[in-house]
Computed example of a mutant assay.
Amino acid sequence: MSCYVDLIFKIGSAGFSNPSAKKHGNQWCHLTADTIEELHQMAEGIGLKKTYFQNKSVPHYDLIPSKRRLALKHGAIEIADPKKFYEIGRKLRKILDDSQKKQEGA
């Protein structure tokens, strides 16, 4: 089981535009993982608050370059292929959705 970071991109590239995020810089990447526990553990280990978690189609945390370096130092794996990164994140999304369905059916 692992955590993953994608490549850094600039705000405004690839259709990404978030004016409120600019206060933290204009370069970002994402952190996801094989399990939600690993994702939150890595985020905590690099100093992110759990409230920063984004439970979207790809569950993730946004990282600025300094946090990305910390994640890599703590064992995260760089994924350069955006499709592969998205695929990993979608697997986590499915795990979370299946878990929720089980809880609702119990």
Rank of each mutant, 00 (worst) to 15 (best):
G15N: 08
A14P: 00
Y4M: 12
W28C: 02
F85K: 03
D34P: 08
A80M: 00
I77L: 11
K91F: 01
I79S: 06
I77G: 05
E104A: 12
A71D: 07
M1R: 12
P82F: 09
Q100T: 12
C29T: 15
E44M: 04
K73V: 00
T35S: 14
T51F: 00
M42H: 11
N18L: 10
L31F: 07
Q27T: 10
Y52S: 13
G45S: 14
W28N: 10
Q54F: 03
K101H: 10
N26L: 07
L70P: 00
K83L: 12
L31W: 05
I46F: 03
R69K: 14
K91D: 09
H74S: 06
I64H: 00
L31N: 02
G75E: 06
K73Y: 10
I79F: 07
F85I: 03
K94E: 09
H24G: 05
Y86A: 13
L48S: 00
R93Q: 03
T51P: 03
K73D: 09
P19Q: 11
F16K: 06
L7Q: 14
R69W: 06
G15R: 05
G15S: 04
L72G: 06
Q27F: 13
F85V: 00
M1I: 14
H24E: 13
A33P: 04
G45D: 10
E44R: 15
K10G: 06
K10D: 07
I36Y: 11
I79M: 06
W28K: 01
P59C: 03
I8S: 02
Q103W: 07
D62S: 13
K101C: 09
K50D: 13
E78L: 15
L72M: 11
K101L: 14
K83G: 00
D98I: 00
P19F: 04
G12L: 03
F9K: 02
E37L: 12
T51N: 11
I11K: 09
T51E: 15
F85L: 02
G75S: 06
E38T: 08
A76Q: 09
S20I: 07
H40A: 09
R93W: 01
T51S: 13
D6I: 10
D34K: 08
G25V: 02
F16W: 08
C3F: 12
G47I: 04
D34E: 11
G75K: 11
F53E: 00
G45K: 04
K23N: 01
Y52M: 13
Y61D: 03
D81F: 00
L96N: 07
G89N: 01
Y52L: 14
M42E: 04
S99R: 15
I79C: 07
C29A: 09
K49I: 01
D62A: 11
A43I: 10
K49E: 15
N26H: 05
G25F: 07
D97C: 08
P59D: 04
E104I: 13
Y52F: 13
M1A: 15
I46W: 05
P59I: 01
L63Y: 10
Q27C: 11
I95H: 06
E37I: 13
L70S: 10
S20D: 13
K83H: 07
K67R: 12
Q41G: 00
L31T: 08
D6C: 08
